[in-house]
């Protein structure tokens, strides 16, 4: 079977059929999924879509990386675009 690829932050990564985005990233050595909206890091945690810790963006919609199967050619981006986050973690509406 020929290898399949998807993109993480524009970088081409290989994946196995059936893999979730989170596991494909882990397998590629990517554990840090980028900044969270409050200045922490997104990362795989509970594996069942409950903790929201592995949120990433695909087609500019937010999804749990541990639930979403990888498909060839999809472009996966960190939750937060660019380096900026809402630094206002302690002051909320």
């Amino acid at each position: 079977m020929s290898a399949s690829f998807f993109f993480w932050r524009g970088e081409k990564l290989e994946f196995q059929p059936g893999q979730t985005v989170a596991l494909a990233l882990e397998a590629a050595g990517q554990r840090d999924f980028g900044p969270s909206a409050t200045g922490l890091r997104q990362r795989y945690f509970c594996g069942i879509g409950a903790c929201q810790g592995c949120l990433v963006r695909i087609d500019d919609t937010v999804v749990e990386a541990c639930l979403r199967p990888v498909e060839a050619g999809i472009r996966v981006e960190p939750l937060v675009a660019g380096p900026s986050v809402d630094t206002d973690g302690g002051r909320h509406d």
Binding site: G18, A27, R43, G47, I48
Partner: peptide
Amino acid sequence: WELPGVMSAGGLQMMMKRRGAVP
């Protein structure tokens, strides 16, 4: 506990069950 590389044991088990391998 919030750092990348830290996961729940259930999360780790889920990885193993899906991939048939330990990360």
